[in-house]
Simulated scan of single mutants.
Amino acid sequence: MTIYQSLVASCVVLAGLLASGEWKTLPSEMRNYKLGQVWYVVTLASASISWQVYTVGLVGLIFESSSVFSNSVTAVGLPIVPVMAVIVFHDKMDAMKIFSIILAIWGFLSLVYQHYLDENKLVTCHTNHVEDDTQI
């Protein structure tokens, strides 16, 4: 399923690029890239390869453990991206990035707390069932 989602997303982005006429500005964008044309291609290629490795890794997590654990790893990774953009690319830390980091951390903590509540409920239910059997 993940491969098909990525394929459809790539096709939609490519169709949007072609329909809007933005593809005509790609050569000038390459020429105006600060680090040069070669690094422009290297940046795009490394971004696409890293996303593929990320996707395959998440699918591997689903197969080896569970989709909940895969989602929690994704939620932990969300705040890392804007922070790394600030550190590596010297990007500005604006209110939108701070807000997205706070929401990502809040989502992860909510997931952990819900898992904690579900585990406590399961332990309590199991303990009460065992105590009822011993009283009979």
Rank of each mutant, 00 (worst) to 15 (best):
A9N: 09
V56Q: 03
Y40Q: 02
G77A: 08
V123F: 10
S100W: 06
D118C: 09
A19Q: 04
N120C: 07
W106I: 11
E119A: 15
S48M: 12
I98Y: 08
F89Q: 08
T134P: 04
A85V: 03
L109P: 03
I102Q: 11
I105V: 15
S65C: 11
V59R: 05
I102S: 10
Y4F: 15
D132P: 03
P82F: 00
S66P: 03
L26V: 15
E29L: 10
S6H: 03
I102N: 12
G57W: 03
D132A: 15
A95R: 12
V53W: 00
M1D: 13
E29V: 05
A85K: 02
G107R: 02
E22D: 13
P27K: 09
Q135F: 15
A47G: 08
N120A: 08
R31N: 14
A85L: 09
L117S: 06
E29F: 07
C125N: 15
E64P: 00
G36D: 06
Q135P: 06
V53P: 00
A75E: 13
G21N: 04
V42G: 00
M93A: 01
V86S: 01
T43P: 00
K24H: 13
I105S: 10
Q114T: 08
I102K: 12
P79W: 06
G77V: 04
V76C: 05
D94V: 01
E29Y: 04
E29N: 09
L61E: 00
G57C: 12
T74N: 11
V81W: 06
I87T: 07
V83L: 09
N120P: 05
N128V: 13
G36N: 10
S10T: 08
S72E: 15
L78N: 09
A45S: 15
V83H: 01
K97Q: 01
E131W: 14
L109C: 10
V112P: 05
I80C: 06
L103D: 04
G16C: 11
W39D: 10
S100H: 05
W106T: 12
P82G: 03
I80V: 08
D118E: 15
S6F: 03
